[in-house]
């Protein structure tokens, strides 16, 4: 398959990049802009928070976002209940003028683990309200199947808890989800710390990566954004190419026929 034909389709929209990136935690708005541009990402996650009038309703950030001309994916970060998530989703839809939603329902504050039952319930309600839900969930096969069954057309299991940078805690679980749900785009969301983690996820057959902290908190966010751009591409191309099978024993790559210094006794 030619690289330029290998697009990612999410809820009917087609993208060239398979890297989704967050807009938080950058050292400055200018570095955020530069890093997002360097990442090649076409989808940016955003949020809503209480603002005082003195902050002019988030006007500065809003202008920065619009100038990037990317597809926005609002989140419900910090919501601890179905009702909070549904309300915040409705507010996001009105303000960001999109029915796309990264659904987050926090189940535990220690590791920000998604509440699996609350996430499924919220997803079901939101889909009935016309949202296109991107659920952030744990790497649990059955929860992923339930999210698919209520109408999610994309699934986003975690690699590890948000902001930890620990990579893929449980590749077996992620691989099982991939094998059992071949029909939906799967995106590893959260826990990615290094480009090698992104390559690993893509090599498992995942369709994309969503990250924020790994770029925003890198020593050089712009350079790291490029590294992740290339890593996601490398992992994707490796999957398309098909890796060689692993072997238990060594097998010489240089021909043995014609080997010098060997003489029949």
């Amino acid at each position: 398959m030619k690289q330029n034909q290998d697009n990612l389709t999410l809820y009917g929209q087609t993208f060239h990049s398979r890297l989704l990136i967050g807009s938080a935690l950058y050292p400055s708005p200018a570095i955020m802009r530069e890093a997002i541009t360097a990442s090649g990402s076409e989808i940016i996650t955003v949020s809503l928070r209480r603002q005082s009038p003195s902050e002019a309703g988030g006007e500065g950030f809003w202008q920065q976002l619009k100038s990037l001309n990317k597809t926005l994916l609002p989140n419900t970060a910090g919501c601890h209940s179905v009702k909070e998530a549904v309300t915040l989703a409705q507010m996001s839809r009105e303000l960001f003028e999109t029915d796309w939603l990264k659904l987050e329902v926090v189940g535990d504050d220690y590791n920000l683990q998604p509440d699996p039952l609350g996430t499924v319930e919220a997803a079901e309600q939101l889909i009935k309200l016309g949202f296109k839900v991107f659920p952030y969930c744990t790497d649990d096969l059955v929860i992923c199947q339930r999210l698919r069954d209520v109408g999610c057309q994309v699934l986003m299991p975690w690699g590890s808890p948000i902001g930890t940078g620990r990579g893929l805690m449980n590749p077996y679980n992620l691989q099982t989800i991939r094998e059992r749900i071949p029909e939906l785009p799967l995106i590893v969301d959260a826990g990615i710390g290094k480009p090698s983690h992104a390559v690993q996820a893509m090599e498992l057959g995942y369709d994309g990566i969503l990250l924020n902290t790994a770029v925003a908190q890198a020593g050089d966010p712009v350079l790291m954004a490029r590294a992740f751009r290339d890593a996601v591409t490398a992992g994707r191309q490796a999957t398309l190419a098909g890796a060689m099978p692993e072997r238990q024993t060594a097998s010489p790559s240089t021909p043995t026929l014609g080997m010098p210094f060997w003489h029949q006794q």
Binding site: Q51, G58, L95, I162
Partner: peptide, 10 residues
């Protein structure tokens, strides 16, 4: 009353 505005998000 909660009045919300756009902010950075991950």
């Amino acid at each position: 009353v909660d009045v919300l505005a756009p902010v950075q998000g991950g």
